[in-house]
Design a protein around this nucleic acid. Sequence first.
DNA 1: CAACATTGTTGTCAGTGACTACTTTGCGGT
DNA 2: ACCGCAAAGTAGTCACTGACAACAATGTTG
Lengths: 202, 202
Amino acid sequence: MRAMPHQTEERRYHHGGLRAALLEAAERSVRDHGVAQLSLRDLAREVGVSHAAPRRHFADRQELLTALAEVGFARLGQDIRGALAETPDEFCARLRGAASAFAHFATGNPALLELMNSTKHHPEAPGVARASDEAFAPILALISEGQQRGLLREGDPQEAGLILFATVNGITTLVNTGLVPAGRLDHLIATAVDLFLRGSAP
Amino acid sequence: MRAMPHQTEERRYHHGGLRAALLEAAERSVRDHGVAQLSLRDLAREVGVSHAAPRRHFADRQELLTALAEVGFARLGQDIRGALAETPDEFCARLRGAASAFAHFATGNPALLELMNSTKHHPEAPGVARASDEAFAPILALISEGQQRGLLREGDPQEAGLILFATVNGITTLVNTGLVPAGRLDHLIATAVDLFLRGSAP
DNA sequence: CAACATTGTTGTCAGTGACTACTTTGCGGT
DNA sequence: ACCGCAAAGTAGTCACTGACAACAATGTTG
């Protein structure tokens, strides 16, 4: 009932959107209490179904966490693409914009990032790999473009893109664990992008 | 008895080294089954004490995990210093040696790295922050030395060091999650260090 | 209309973290 | 040497969890 605000007092037997509702609830739980505290029974209670219902949609707890990581990568990809859509068509500005969007997503969702960084990619579950490739794709495209326009040195664009991706990821991990104060994030990211551009100059 | 190989068949009431034994067992468990599966009762059984004994040394499960993360950083620091002790006194070689040691520690201990990357630094528990600072110190010293000798551009050595540290950390995360094949680790690290050196050149 | 697959419910079980009360032991002070 | 006490360990308890099995509700399709 509470999960379907347009229905009458009586809820139908079928929830009608349980998988999505569970993932939303999971994201809230992870945000508020961290990954370790996530509980299938908690989610079921929150969504208003019986305690075993979530296992109709996710074989086990790990499968739900994996699906949530996929949501995280999809969200990240959106944020990066959104930032690029608002950035002037100037290569360095776009690279900075993408890196900044990643950093802010990551520090705005520390627990989700942690989950994304600990979810193994399996051939049987191609969703996470696909989603992470899609999140990475705008950065890869930028690097390729930079190389083609002679703004970056030639080489494997995927390699350079992975290094930049890893750098931003690593910096946000330092901030999320408290090793580096959050107030230094933007400056560190900007410095890292500058360093990357100098180091990748033709 | 099994935990104290020099004793007779009868174990004394006091274990005599239970905290250390628990941390060793915890490291094995995390290595074999991942952080999420770590169980205080499991550890107690393995070490040969009652199920509640571990809570005499660690207030709760999280405190034990935090202590283990500290062990991880201490181990990392040792590996980096060990690598530097065996590297010729040539700046670039040493920087590469340190980065490589970090990368190999991280990919050789994926679950431990994950724990280290998810352990929050709290003022009440300064051990982790101290251990991670000590792990970072050789890299910081290298950067400072490189700057003083005019091999790197001037600037905040801590900042440059953090960027390099984050980059290696991020790359190993990509490898540990399977986004990047393990066989590409050394090449990626070498490329990242080269890029760092070019980007930091005076 | 009926069969059946999907989805949800109820109940059960073993294991867990955390807590409490009690016991053991070794150290330090007198 | 003796004793008090703190530290460390034991045994029991409780609520909660993930996972599983059996049953029930429902909607789609032939």
